[in-house]
């Protein structure tokens, strides 16, 4: 019956006088990567918080995996996982302990095995028994995302997962997101980087002044604008490309 992981109709939310969401509508197809684009303060995080049951909307309807977030928040929580805008790892615990803790809280049978697999998959095996407080920013974000994958929720929210990461770590996160979607997980991504949406998303929605002003595939969005004119420009490598090829000569991209 449901082909959508998320269905949002007429969602409104205000903080006192500030009308953040003024009637937001969108749908996210099962198994796809959906990117919500918007500048800082446009309300992306508010949408994520409503969909992950942390915040109640003022009006409108939001269904996640077929459950109304306002009516069955507990059902919703069982089928999602959230990686918030700020890395939420326990810095006093080791990487392994963080993962085992989440496994236990999700009432899984073998949290230690799951932790081990995830540590390996995210390249954290060597650092597994060090406190997360000693990790670099990129490692913390990886652990943070790994913690969201414990229990294999069918829908994962990533709220600005690459903000504050260096280019190398950003590419790692992108790779992980693609892998996730490859395994059938639905990914809801918010970002302020246009390139990120372009790289990852099957469908993109742009949130501006409280409403979704456009949404569709990248190709569809491109069609909204006048056709490209052909110009000849000498291709200069971007600073990012230079940086990446210097620190990692094997990586051509």
């Amino acid at each position: 019956m449901e082909n959508n992981s998320i269905q949002v109709i007429g969602l409104k939310k205000s903080y006192r006088q500030l009308h953040v969401l003024k009637g937001v509508d969108f749908e996210v197809e099962k198994g796809s990567i959906f990117a919500l684009l918007g500048s800082n303060g446009s309300g992306k995080t508010t949408i994520v918080k409503i969909l992950s049951t942390l915040l109640k909307q003022d009006s409108g309807m939001a269904k996640v995996n077929g459950f109304d977030v306002a009516v069955h928040p507990d059902k919703v929580r069982q089928s999602i996982s959230l990686t918030g805008q700020f890395v939420a790892v326990d810095e006093i615990l080791t990487g392994r302990e963080n993962l085992v803790m989440i496994g236990r809280l999700r009432h899984l049978k073998n949290p230690h095995d799951i932790a081990k697999q995830l540590l390996q998959r995210f390249g954290l095996t060597e650092a597994a028994d060090r406190r997360a407080g000693t990790y670099s920013g990129g490692m913390r974000r990886r652990l943070d995302i790994a913690m969201s994958l414990v229990g294999r929720s069918p829908l994962v929210f990533l709220d600005e997962p690459t903000t504050g990461l260096d280019p190398e770590a950003r590419i790692e996160v992108w790779k992980m997101v693609k892998e996730l979607a490859g395994n059938g997980t639905t990914v809801f991504l918010t970002t302020q980087y246009l390139e990120e949406a372009e790289q990852l998303a099957d469908k993109i929605a742009i949130l501006h002044e409280g409403k979704i002003i456009v949404s569709g595939t990248l190709a569809a969005l491109k069609r909204l604008f006048p056709p490209a004119t052909v110009e000849y420009i000498e291709k200069q490598p971007t600073l990012e490309e230079i940086f990446l090829s210097i620190i990692n000569p094997k990586n051509e991209n």
Binding site: S52, T53, L54, D74, R77, Q78, I80, S81, L82, G84, Q85, F86, V87, A88, D90, E91, I102, L105, R106, M147
Partner: peptide, 13 residues
């Protein structure tokens, strides 16, 4: 502050 409670609250616990 660190968002740890947010993480817990979005989980079925």
């Amino acid at each position: 502050q660190r968002g740890i409670f947010e993480r817990f609250n979005s989980m079925p616990i």
